[in-house]
Write a protein that binds this DNA or RNA. Structure first.
Lengths: 350, 350
DNA sequence: GTGAAAGCGCTAACAT
DNA sequence: ATGTTAGCGCTTTCAC
């Protein structure tokens, strides 16, 4: 039947050296002559040897695997990050294993952490919200790097985008187009980054001397559906906004759908700007003006930070914040001066 | 500092039994008295013991982990499947690790396979296209179950949706609405399931005696952008279709955007039906009529099949095909009898 | 029902 | 530059 999976022992025997020498050769460690090394490598390749990373890890060494913890795979957001991390890991000669965290059960988190650190040299946690997971992570025995959450309260090195600054960019863009009544569609309050965006919105409004009414802030949950629903509240205002800034792109899609549903047009009647720049946003119709998160760069940066931690170099509490970027597309435009918005409702109120 | 991670040895010592007894108790194996078992369990829980699955696997046993191989995370399609698989695995007391395959390099696949099978008891391969990966998988030493590809050529047990039947449903739905000129936006030809959908389209057209012109079949690649572009070819036809069936939902979004761009409306001027029913489809505007793949059920079914294989029960070449379901929403409607489509072009041709 | 011994594949630590 | 020994944490086998 299928031959036994080749082990280090086989390689060593065939090469006529000790396992240790073979190991050193395969791992590119010093202490092996060039000839020996080449020979070992050749043989390993010949017989299709693949190191058993399970054994590697068990024997106390590194195994070149980084583990990713993510709450869910179903947002383009995390997909983008994971994709980027995978690429970066490969680039650094590492493999990557993804572990999805489902529920908020403390016990589960403890187990999962145990599991993932048995398998990997370090953990990349894509944890936008302050999850219980963080508590579990605190007891980790391998390095941890948190993505998308400033490590302020976690104490872990972190990589995130400048959510605050990005929000400022968004509002400034709208203001430049002449918009005065700018609404914000808030997202999940438990997400640090989202709160930062809201702060950016509020502060910029203040700085620019624009109206800051509570009614101009709608409560969403980052989902398209919810965004769709609450948009009507904004539209129904006595003095509706001429522009809406949403906490994420997904919400923006819902907002645009709702605006259309109300018989208005984007950006002619109302401008919409999102946050994230997920792939869908460019393809959406109208193409979405948004604030771009540099996913690739964030991922690469996170992987590098983690690798540094694993190697024992790198500050323990490094916080990296990457700049966000305004991407102007078709969903924002100059404010309409003529006030002939929402004919339907004007009839009602007449 | 942080206490040593508790091991089986610690548990055994504290319980005053041998490691073997502790192991049996923890794994629910027979040969342990109820009292002993309870005591061991209690202690393990107390000291926060988590089994080292790495050691477990190395020592030749199972470790209760199933590995998922997927080409990419960036489609809602695979996300849905993985999500479902995760749930199913948890339900069965297993953990799940995801491994993303990037490139089509044979060597990589060999390594990755070696890696993933070191970590898991079995592999779930989400492999819509005939990837080189399959070749590597053929030498796997753990059970493999393929999702979304009938195992005809792989020899692995498989779980997939009835793509052919689903396509028939789609065309029949359109035909019932009075559509005669029904176009198909094809997808990636290397994907078996997509080819099946096209067959279903063709055969149903034939069966219903509807026109089957080559020009009514546009070549896409499952992406929204590509769909957007090629839709104009369809629209520019001397006698354009009144309905378009797309190989997947993502494409349908592009088609709808293009139709709008051309100044036409969905479904008033042209009906559009997709395939997949990803979450976005319900939220899209207009809500997309589509053929639903039962992702949850597929995932559950696949996990169960894999578990059966791992347990040594279950036919080696089991092929499960789940029925697809028509979901009627707002993107399809009765055919327009008046021929006043595409005013723009009619002017040109006049 | 329980335990002791051996070993999975690898690498650190200490030889030589 | 290379080899030897020990052991990672667990489960198998075989004993009692």
């Amino acid at each position: 039947m299928a031959k036994q999976t080749p082990t280090l022992e086989h390689v060593a025997k065939l090469a006529g050296v000790s396992q240790m020498t073979a190991s050193r050769a395969l791992n590119g460690r010093p202490g092996v002559s060039r000839e020996t090394r080449d020979e070992v490598l050749r043989i390993a390749s010949d017989i299709g040897y693949v190191v058993n990373r399970t054994a590697q890890k068990l024997s106390g060494g590194r195994n070149g695997i980084i583990g990713i913890i993510t709450p869910t795979l179903d947002t383009q957001f995390s997909s983008e990050l994971i994709l980027g991390a995978g690429r970066a890991a490969r680039g650094a000669g590492c493999e990557m294993l993804v572990y999805t965290v489902f529920d908020e059960d403390r016990h589960t988190h403890h187990d999962l952490l145990g599991l993932i650190q048995q398998f990997s040299d370090g953990i990349l946690a894509i944890l936008p919200r302050e999850s219980l997971c963080l508590e579990a992570l605190a007891t980790a025995k391998v390095p941890v790097v948190v993505v998308d959450q400033r490590g302020t309260l976690t104490g872990f090195p972190s990589v995130s985008v400048d959510n605050y600054g990005g929000a400022c960019l968004a509002v400034e863009h709208l203001a430049q187009l002449g918009h005065k009544r700018i609404a914000f569609l808030a997202g999940d309050e438990t997400i640090e980054g989202v709160r930062d965006r809201q702060r950016g919105y509020r502060d910029t409004l203040a700085r620019l001397g624009l109206p800051r009414e509570d009614s101009l802030v709608a409560a969403g949950d980052l989902s398209q559906m919810m965004a769709f629903d609450v948009t009507f509240d904004l539209l129904d205002l006595a003095e509706p906004p001429t522009a809406i800034f949403t906490a994420n792109d997904q919400s923006a899609f819902g907002v645009i759908a709702a605006i259309r549903e109300a018989g208005l047009r984007v950006p002619d009647d109302i401008s919409v700007i999102g946050f994230d720049d997920i792939p869908m946003s460019e393809q959406f119709h109208p193409a979405l003006t948004t604030i771009r998160q540099p996913f690739q760069q964030m991922a690469r940066s996170a992987v590098n930070t983690l690798l540094a931690q694993i190697a024992g170099i790198g500050a323990a509490s490094q916080r990296i914040t990457l700049p966000a970027e305004l991407v102007v597309r078709d969903s924002t435009g100059p404010v309409r001066t003529k006030q002939r918005r929402r004919a339907r409702h004007q009839i009602v109120s007449t």
